[in-house]
Write a protein that binds this DNA or RNA. Structure first.
Length: 708
DNA sequence: TGGCCTCGAGTTCA
DNA sequence: CTCGAGGCCA
């Protein structure tokens, strides 16, 4: 062997090994830079000695020239589809059918996650990768050999004792991290972003230019076989997968063996719980009878095997259309765009709204009316618009988009006042310029002149954690403000039976609803009486609730409580200057200015006076500047469901003993009380080594330390 | 000045 | 629940 030939062979071995460890074993042996250097060296040798080039060389992975189109490939053994199960019952039927037909109880299944990618078939002859094809319609697919060669997870040469012919089937997919990184790069360079990892995988393989495919972060897992020649199949599917690993194929580490219906459902739940944590998207799990002879005995129906089934997860992403983009006005005047969507089931609930957060988010997504969008309910519950499906945007006769990009109104949709961009100042540069953070908020300048803000102020005032007026909900407040029965929160206390009934009539007339409640006059009267009673009941309250209810910006529950304790009474708070307010713990210059500014407004002082006159009374006492009691100085976090007294009451009792009750766990937390189904907070507590109490221990403690 | 630790505010749906 | 930002401490 000549020197270049020997070196080339050595380089191929090194590169193949590095590839295998990186993509199959997930255990990189050499740094990327070194891999690149070796690859370039090999390319140089092959360029200088074309006779040394070979189809299985790692250099072939970088992608050759543009393909003229894809040749058809007839699958010698068809690539079948799987029947789907969407419920536990359907899985139970599947298992029962097998048990009955085979006469076995609790058969064993090979189980694996169902990747959301593209099924392909890889053909190896004498251990060499000769052809790769898409599934196509199952009988005929497309020859995408050149593109598949660029996937480093696909071995070009099998390891070990390779049979003369081996067809391996599996899924090409795009890991989420690779998808995100690729899209980020495309956004930067103005390239085309991919809609989702699945489309990314499918689109990449159908790229006519393998160099483009090579740039896509694709991966592969093997899960089955096509035709083989000269290989004695192991008795079980799970053993076969193990053998494929031996040949150098990546097989999902999640594959396992489960027994009977119970085992299947357990696996389904276990994978489902980890779904978001996986590196790739999955849309369910697949169960396959593990013993090949049992598979053979079950056979096929039409185009799907009767020995396997895909158990699907409820879809987390759905396509729907944007019917309108509306703008909401919040309590602080912030304008929030909301997409009204055609109702669609996502992960078990019907979604009709999704927030678009702010102008930047809208601009980034470029959402327009009529667009088809992907909606997701990710780890949390709140739906979001992931992206627009550009190809489905409605066009006019000239092929131009039917709708212009969304623009924020220059006037408030509720009151017509001009809107204003409140940009957050990031930092002042030395030259005197100002850098702004992204995410400029647009606010209405109308203040309490704006009915939307007035409504929100009243809703906040009546809310459970503020004045706790039962039955005074959003729609009712809306009507009260619209018909001018309520201008300030104090007006609530002047409302009489007739007001409510008259307003109800006007509201029903306006909305065109035939009011059953008015027909049955008694019912409506009862409704109004209950409301008046609830409003009257809120007259007796506490200083902290009142302070919170007033809706001073940046004064939430916690700050309201601190203020109430520190001053003991309302008047000294109203009279305090900024410096005095800054003495209050957790109150700094920003919050102090908000509070002083609020009470400097004659209008706000009038509202307080009107509330007093309307009979609102609150507890006042001596200033309490430092917490006392057995838990003084301790910070406690409550999490999970408490059976006996509920979190709110438990919090009150703990505070009465001097504890500070907080919402987030940190290393400063004294202890965490964890009830049933405690989640991330308990996890964090354990991670930080914070003491954890169960409910019984809390009750013991409270019982042995009566408050006061 | 930087880096936690909190709090406040906004959001959806059963 | 998450994000952003105010407040506090080193």
């Amino acid at each position: 062997m000549t020197a270049p030939a020997a070196r080339a062979a050595q380089l191929r071995r090194l590169l193949d090994e590095a590839n295998h460890r990186y993509h199959v074993l997930d255990d990189p042996a050499i740094p990327d830079a070194e891999y690149d250097a070796l690859l370039r060296e090999l390319q140089a040798i092959e360029l200088a000695h074309p006779d040394l080039a070979s189809a299985d060389s790692p250099t072939q992975r970088v992608g050759a020239g543009v393909l003229p189109g894809f040749a058809e490939v007839v699958h010698e053994q068809p690539m079948l589809s799987l029947n789907n199960a969407f419920s536990d019952e359907e899985v139970a039927e599947f298992v029962q059918r097998i048990e009955k037909q085979l006469g076995v109880a609790e058969p064993e299944f090979s189980v694996e996650p169902k990747l959301d990618g593209l099924a392909i078939s890889l053909r190896y002859e004498q251990g060499l990768f000769v052809r790769g094809a898409t599934r196509g319609d199952g009988a005929t697919g497309e020859d995408v050999t050149q593109n598949l060669r660029t996937l480093k997870a696909i071995p070009l040469r099998l390891r070990g004792q390779a049979p003369p012919v081996l067809e391996v089937r599996g899924e090409v997919y795009m890991p989420r991290a690779g998808f995100e990184a690729y899209n980020a790069r495309m956004r930067e360079t103005g390239g085309k972003v991919l809609a989702n990892p699945r489309n990314g995988a499918a689109g990449s393989l159908r790229q006519l230019d393998p160099r483009l495919a090579a740039a896509r972060p694709l991966a592969f897992y093997a899960y089955g076989l096509g035709v083989t020649d000269g290989w004695t199949l192991p008795a079980r599917h799970s053993q076969m997968l193990q053998a494929l690993r031996g040949f150098g194929f990546p097989v999902s580490p999640e594959v396992s063996v489960a027994r009977g219906l119970g085992g299947l459902l357990e696996y389904y739940a276990a994978i489902g719980a980890r779904r978001d944590a996986l590196a790739y998207d999955i849309d369910g799990v697949v169960y396959k009878l593990d013993h090949h002879d049992q598979q053979k005995a079950m056979g096929f129906v039409s185009r799907a095997p009767r020995w396997a089934i895909a158990h699907k997860f409820p879809a987390q992403e759905q396509l729907t259309t944007v019917e309108a983009i509306e703008v909401q006005v919040g309590r602080t005047g912030a304008l929030t765009p909301v997409a009204r969507l055609a109702p669609v089931q996502v992960a078990g609930v019907v979604v009709t709204n999704a927030t678009l957060h702010n102008a930047d988010q809208i601009a980034r997504l470029d959402v327009r009316v009529g667009d088809t969008v992907i909606v997701r309910r990710a780890g949390d519950v709140i739906p979001e618009v992931v992206r627009v499906v550009a190809e489905k945007r409605p066009l006019d006769a000239h092929g131009r988009p039917l709708h212009a990009p969304f623009e924020f109104p220059s006037t408030c949709p509720a009151c017509g006042s001009p809107t204003e961009a409140v940009r957050k100042v990031l930092k002042q540069t030395k030259a005197g310029g100002i850098e702004y953070a992204e995410g400029a908020a647009i606010v209405c300048t109308g203040g309490l002149f704006c009915p939307a803000q007035r409504k929100q102020a009243v809703i906040h005032f009546a809310s459970r954690r503020a004045m706790d007026i039962e039955g005074l909900g959003e729609s009712l407040v809306e009507a009260l403000v619209d018909f001018d029965y309520v201008r300030t929160v104090a007006d609530l206390y002047a409302l009489g039976l007739d007001d409510f009934l008259a307003m109800r009539r006007r509201a029903d007339e306006r909305d065109g609803t035939v009011p059953e409640t008015v027909k049955a006059g008694k019912v409506a009267t009862k409704w109004a009486e209950n409301l008046i009673e609830a409003i009257a009941a809120s007259q007796a309250t506490s200083l902290e609730r009142l302070l919170f209810a007033l809706g001073i910006r940046d004064v939430g529950e916690s700050t309201a409580r601190t203020l109430a304790r520190h001053f003991g009474a309302l008047q000294p708070i109203m009279d305090a200057d900024e410096a005095t307010l800054c003495e209050v713990p957790d109150v700094g210059p920003v919050v102090a200015r908000r509070i002083a500014g609020f009470f400097a407004e004659p209008h706000n002082r009038e509202v307080v006076e009107a509330l007093r006159k309307a009979g609102v009374r609150w507890t006042e006492g001596a200033p309490q500047r430092s917490a006392q009691g057995p838990l003084a100085g301790q910070t406690v976090v409550l999490t999970g469901a408490l059976a006996v007294m509920g979190r709110d009451e438990a919090g009150d009792r703990l505070q009465a003993l001097g504890a500070k009750v907080s919402g987030s766990v940190s290393k400063k937390t004294s202890f965490v009380v964890a009830g049933e189904a405690a989640g991330s907070k308990l996890e964090k507590a354990l991670a930080l080594g914070v003491e954890v109490w169960d409910e019984a221990r809390l009750l013991d403690f409270l019982n042995s330390h009566p408050a006061g």
